[in-house]
């Protein structure tokens, strides 16, 4: 309630600020900044914006031999097809669940891992750990899929252990809910080491004297973690988290494609695997493009939304 009352006030002050800012920006001060941005802006224009013309295919019945200009326009036909497709609700839902879990835990796990690693005083141990956990990132899912299928199969190592413990075998890849679990965990496992690096970089920017001062004040290590370590990483965590929202409808094609099977279609089929089967295999580029466009739009909306949220309530610009 309180925030709702304060809102108009906040808005008006921020508007006032904006006006002030506008008068303050001077070409004489900012031209070097514009110049610095120029090369990247041009490269982006050529290699990202020019090819974006291909998005036109989403509204066409694209035939390779007619080309992008010659193909027939069919308006929103592909989008209609997508939403009327009997399976699409289930597939979108699967994607949201799998991808949502990956985003949340994909952020939390490296964050916590970086904190744990920060508590390690033995430099050699720290480095070895850092290097080893970063390795799985480099194994492709073709290989990893084969290894996992093997390990998680009915007679794989994992189920042998579970059987030995009297728990009984678990259908990791052959039952829908377990499949989602397996997919999320193995994805986190593959990437947390790599994603930790960026947090470690943030931590190495922390001035050691802060910890020393805190210690003199008698703060416990836990308090230091909360008040020094975590604040140093949060801005990066917010950025990484927000940007990954753009991927909310990418469930991880390579992984799912290499792990799924007809027993888990109902809970494991995601948008990209679905598009692969319906469109890519048949060379129906326009349907693939239309679905891609839809995914991007949702991603954009989420990013804009969280950006505005952060700015409105915390006065913080994520980007």
């Amino acid at each position: 309630m309180e925030s709702a009352i304060n809102e108009p006030l906040k808005q008006s002050t921020s508007q006032a600020n904006k006006q002030l800012n506008r008068s303050r920006e001077k070409w004489s001060r900012t031209w070097p900044l514009h110049l610095m941005l120029l090369p990247a802006a041009i490269a982006t224009f050529i290699f990202a914006y020019v090819p974006m013309s291909g998005l036109i295919m989403a509204f066409q019945d694209f035939k390779p031999y007619d080309g992008m200009l010659g193909s027939k326009f069919i308006g929103m036909e592909h989008f209609r097809f997508m939403f009327e497709y009997p399976d699409s609700k289930q597939v979108i839902w699967n994607t949201l669940i799998i991808s949502g879990l990956k985003i949340v835990f994909g952020l939390i796990v490296p964050f916590v891992f970086a904190i744990l690693l920060n508590e390690v005083r033995k430099m050699l141990f720290k480095r070895v750990v850092q290097t080893l956990v970063y390795l799985p990132h480099f194994i492709s899912w073709v290989i990893l899929g084969a290894i996992l299928t093997d390990m998680l199969g009915s007679e794989g190592v994992v189920n042998q252990v579970l059987n030995g413990l009297g728990i009984g075998a678990i259908p990791w890849l052959m039952e829908g809910d377990w499949f989602r679990f397996t997919v999320v965990v193995s994805d986190i496992w593959q990437n947390f080491g790599f994603n930790t690096i960026v947090f470690l970089a943030a931590l190495s920017g922390v001035n050691p004297s802060l910890y020393e001062a805190a210690e003199v004040d008698g703060a416990t290590r836990w308090k230091q973690t909360i008040h020094i370590t975590m604040p140093a990483m949060i801005p990066i965590a917010v950025v990484v988290g927000t940007l990954s929202l753009g991927n909310i409808l990418n469930g991880g094609f390579d992984q799912i494609f290499n792990l799924y099977n007809s027993l888990v279609y109902d809970k494991g089929d995601i948008i990209d695997t679905f598009v692969y089967r319906t469109a890519i295999l048949n060379g129906q580029y326009s349907f693939g493009t239309a679905v891609g466009l839809f995914k991007s739009l949702i991603g954009l909306i989420l990013i804009v939304f969280s950006y505005r949220l952060a700015f409105k309530y915390a006065g913080y610009r994520i980007f």
Binding site: P86, D87, M174, N261, S262, L263, R277
Partner: peptide, 19 residues
């Protein structure tokens, strides 16, 4: 085709596996 194949494959597998 995709819809129909998925239907067939899924049902076939689930019958064999007793699901």
């Amino acid at each position: 085709n995709e819809l129909l194949n998925k239907l067939l494959n899924e049902t076939f597998s689930k019958i064999i596996y007793g699901q």
